[in-house]
Design a protein around this nucleic acid. Sequence first.
DNA 1: CATGCTTGTTAGAGCTTGTAACTCCGCGTG
DNA 2: CACGCGGAGTTACAAGCTCTAACAAGCATG
Lengths: 226, 226
Amino acid sequence: MEAEPRRTPIRERFREQVRDDVKTIALEQLADGGAQAISLNAIAKELGVSGPALYRYFANRDELLSSLVVDAYSDLRDALARPVGAGERRAEERGAGENARIRRLARAYRVWAQEQPHRYELLFKPPLPGYDAHSTQISEAGRSLMGVVLGVIDGGSDATTSPLDSAEVLHARSTGAPNFQLAVRVWSRLHGFVSLELGGAYNAMSVDADALFDAEIDVLTDGGEL
Amino acid sequence: MEAEPRRTPIRERFREQVRDDVKTIALEQLADGGAQAISLNAIAKELGVSGPALYRYFANRDELLSSLVVDAYSDLRDALARPVGAGERRAEERGAGENARIRRLARAYRVWAQEQPHRYELLFKPPLPGYDAHSTQISEAGRSLMGVVLGVIDGGSDATTSPLDSAEVLHARSTGAPNFQLAVRVWSRLHGFVSLELGGAYNAMSVDADALFDAEIDVLTDGGEL
DNA sequence: CATGCTTGTTAGAGCTTGTAACTCCGCGTG
DNA sequence: CACGCGGAGTTACAAGCTCTAACAAGCATG
């Protein structure tokens, strides 16, 4: 569907540029005010154009939001892949690297979420109930993230250069690779911790979040069973 | 602050009644459409009154939302306390009850979230950034929930009859009770799993959620270390 | 040059939250 | 009983949002 109009490349470049500008301002609005504060109208005003102009670039508000989600996934993915790969290079311990990699992964995950809480929050907001038009891109991005986690778990630094793509992820799943379940569990726990932390739950009941995080990491790495 | 007007009891009753009606309709809107779909205007229309009338009962939309959050916390709390207490009564195993209690708690938690996903989602939506006026009530409700979890972990069925109140929770924390950290970790993991499940993450990458959940429960109960 | 696609404009429908000003009814008190 | 006050509801309206429709202008290629 959606008869993709084929634009002249120069036009296309400009188009991407504008889309990026819009997203940049949207991220600012997101940073202070949350997802609800993102307003196409306000963005247009800030860009010096008039409201409906932006509908040339985003079909509707939801498409902008979805786009931000996809970007955030890919950003988080990179933020995870980088330190893990770097660690592999300086490689204090080569053989027993898995635990070290998981530690780095976990810390990077938490740090990323702490530094841009609203953006992290955005990843898990989207329409619970049904699937909108762009959900395929979103879940694709999610799988890509899992690819990195999976790479960290049973692979090594190659996650940096070429993170497993979705096809590989699906393959790992369908072959029943135990490490895939492991990776999912790691993600699940990380998300549980980070989500409660951002929600202010630990704060509200005076829990030492740092200590708790360290404890969870220890379980994740020390015990063969996690 | 807020000079509480002292109303005649009959008035007060009526007032509570209307507030409940509003919340009921709000829950319906929440069930299909998410939190964003809750509209004071639409609720008023459905109640047969005119828009601004509802502002006699809720200062603004946020207060309605906060009220729903508090109710949801208390509802979830009850849903957790009930089966755990019941299990204690039929008590297939008396001494080794802790694992059984945790299992029941975990299952009840997941079931509650699955049955009313939007309501569960609501619990972790509220304003990340700052604290609005009602956040004290909300975090109070959250602590109350933790009281039940804590009761399940190191107490027994008395969680049913008299769940630990916030004071006790705070006491348990300040005395550095190890079970408190344990309870928080249980909650964190449960939330991580449930949140990803509701978000459709497992579905999106064809993970067997049931198996994963069982595996996580096993870790939670079997290994002395969790 | 001329045609057509792309982008921008203004106007406006329809929705929302929330305020202001006014009416009305019932309850408790004098 | 009568009065009056307070709570509840009304309409009108401001300001904001998303998004559509209809129209004007510009760049780029045939």
